[in-house]
């Protein structure tokens, strides 16, 4: 249907003096996709979005939108819409004027502006607030106003820079769902920057995980979760984070603190590895690793256990069966296919 909104980044490098903020970013986003840029602060995800928007320009590399090289093009000529973290509503204009502004700049006729503004406002349910100034709106309403301003022009790209981070927790969850519905109904390509892995996991069709100016992994959220391709991605995705313990692989088994666990990986020879096990994949079963329960965080339907295993600390999430007491000795294990192995030196997935 809508075939606009394809993005391609080719070897994008961004230098700030001698500091390289982006060290060669490559990715392609397909039309209509919801694409998340996920990473800790300072990882380069916001810089990437700003370069895509035209607010910053790369030091080298090429940005292509819909088959055209736009690298040197000003933001105003790129036909992209953006929702800012601070919303950046124009305080001296009413909600109506705010939403109408992009249309005005695009020289849309007066007669067409009015219905278009009402339509956009209706989609985000603020059509009753059109005469207010941004200062008279709640945080959630301001956020919707920013959304309406972004969707009114039907731009080919919809950029969102941590749009939910200024909302309180409950509103954030509601808005997240609506945002996803809105993007689906518009069929527009969305690029979404966030440091919240849960947001990225739930919203995105695909995501790119950023660390220190580089993309560590691109893929569907479930893929990235199931097969993190490095120790850093594994530690970043999932809550509580994956247990990562130094160990040694030999012959279909990993050895941790002198105890062996069977794994489904088949690698030639024996080598030092980092063993990764998601807390949710840990099972309290006999015949595993002997550990002591340090702390129990009871969350009602599940409980998170802090365990000591020799010199290592592990976390396990248990959702059924009896919850052990603090100080109790337990035996933990994991299914062979739930054990991730990373190279101890390159820290890459094996």
């Amino acid at each position: 249907m809508n075939m606009r909104g394809q993005v391609h980044f080719d070897r994008i490098v961004k230098m700030h003096g001698n500091f390289s903020a982006l060290k060669g970013i490559d990715f392609t986003i397909q039309p209509g996709e919801f694409f998340a840029l996920l990473g800790p602060s300072g990882s380069g995800k916001s810089t990437t979005l700003r370069i895509l928007a035209g607010l910053d320009m790369p030091t080298s590399g090429t940005v292509v939108i819909d088959g055209k090289d736009v690298t040197a093009l000003d933001a105003k000529d790129r036909d992209v819409a953006m929702v800012f973290q601070s919303y950046a509503l124009y305080p001296h204009m009413t909600v109506f004027e705010n939403i109408a502004f992009p249309l005005e700049m695009a020289k849309v006729g007066k007669a067409e502006i009015e219905p278009a503004v009402r339509e956009a406002a209706r989609k985000v349910k603020i059509d009753h607030l059109l005469d207010r100034k941004p200062g008279q709106l709640s945080g959630g309403q301001q956020q919707r106003c920013a959304l309406a301003r972004a969707i009114v022009r039907k731009a080919r790209l919809f950029l969102l820079d941590e749009p939910l981070s200024n909302l309180d927790a409950k509103l954030r969850l509601e808005t997240r769902i609506e945002l996803k519905k809105l993007q689906r109904s518009l069929g527009v390509t969305a690029v979404y920057v966030t440091h919240d892995q849960e947001e990225a996991m739930t919203l995105a069709d695909r995501m790119a995980v950023f660390m220190e100016g580089q993309i560590q992994q691109i893929g569907r959220p479930s893929e990235v979760f199931a097969k993190p391709n490095s120790v850093d991605v594994a530690a970043f995705i999932g809550s509580p984070p994956m247990n990562l313990i130094e160990g040694r692989y030999a012959d279909g088994h990993v050895e941790i603190e002198g105890h062996r666990l069977r794994t489904s990986h088949q690698i030639a020879g024996s080598r030092n590895v980092i063993v990764g096990i998601r807390p949710g994949a840990m099972r309290l079963e006999a015949g595993g690793l002997p550990a002591t329960v340090d702390l129990v965080e009871d969350l009602g339907d599940t409980a998170v256990l802090d365990l000591t295993l020799g010199g290592a600390t592990l976390r396990a999430r248990v959702s059924d069966g009896p919850v052990p007491k603090e100080g109790q000795a337990v035996s933990v294990t994991a299914r062979p296919e739930d054990i991730h192995l990373f190279d101890a030196t390159t820290r890459k997935r094996l």
Partner: peptide
């Protein structure tokens, strides 16, 4: 962000 939002909205 005021200027940036305006540039994105297509203003010179």
């Amino acid at each position: 962000e005021m200027e940036e939002a305006a540039y994105i909205d297509g203003a010179s």
